[in-house]
Amino acid sequence: MENKPNSHTEKLYRAIQLTRPLLRHISAYVEQELGDSGVTVGQRAVLEVLYTDGAMTAPQLTQKLELKRQFVARMLAEATDAGLVTQQANPEHARAHFHVLTDAGHGAIARIRDHEMQKLLELEALFTVEEIETHYRVQQVMNRWFADRLTTPKP
Rank of each mutant, 00 (worst) to 15 (best):
H8I: 15
T9H: 05
E10W: 03
K11R: 14
L12S: 02
L12F: 12
L12T: 05
Y13A: 06
Y13G: 06
Y13L: 05
A15T: 09
I16E: 03
Q17W: 07
Q17N: 13
L18C: 05
L18H: 06
T19G: 06
R20D: 03
R20S: 08
P21W: 09
P21R: 03
L22T: 14
L22N: 05
L23G: 01
R24K: 11
H25W: 12
H25N: 11
H25R: 13
I26N: 00
A28M: 13
Y29Q: 07
V30I: 13
V30P: 02
E31M: 01
E31K: 11
Q32R: 12
L34G: 02
L34S: 03
G35R: 02
D36N: 12
S37G: 11
S37L: 04
S37P: 05
G38S: 05
T40M: 04
T40C: 04
V41E: 04
V41M: 00
G42D: 06
G42S: 11
Q43T: 00
Q43Y: 01
Q43M: 15
Q43S: 03
R44G: 14
A45R: 07
V46E: 02
E48L: 15
V49K: 08
L50H: 00
L50C: 02
Y51P: 05
Y51R: 13
Y51A: 14
T52A: 14
T52H: 09
D53T: 08
D53W: 08
G54R: 03
G54F: 12
M56G: 03
T57S: 15
T57D: 07
T57P: 11
A58K: 06
A58D: 01
A58Y: 00
A58G: 05
Q60N: 01
L61W: 00
T62G: 05
Q63N: 15
K64I: 09
K64F: 10
K64L: 11
L65I: 10
L65N: 02
L65D: 06
L65F: 08
E66W: 02
E66D: 15
K68H: 11
R69L: 07
R69Q: 12
Q70T: 06
Q70W: 10
Q70M: 13
Q70F: 05
V72L: 01
A73S: 07
A73M: 10
R74A: 09
R74H: 13
M75C: 15
L76C: 01
A77F: 09
E78A: 15
T80S: 09
T80V: 14
D81F: 09
D81L: 14
D81E: 14
A82T: 08
L84C: 07
L84Q: 01
V85T: 00
T86F: 07
Q87N: 11
Q87W: 08
Q87F: 15
Q88V: 14
Q88R: 14
Q88P: 10
A89L: 12
N90S: 15
P91H: 06
P91V: 03
E92N: 15
H93W: 09
A94K: 07
A94C: 03
A94Q: 07
R95H: 10
R95T: 04
R95F: 03
A96L: 12
H97Y: 10
F98Q: 05
H99N: 15
H99K: 15
H99F: 15
H99T: 06
V100K: 02
V100L: 13
L101A: 01
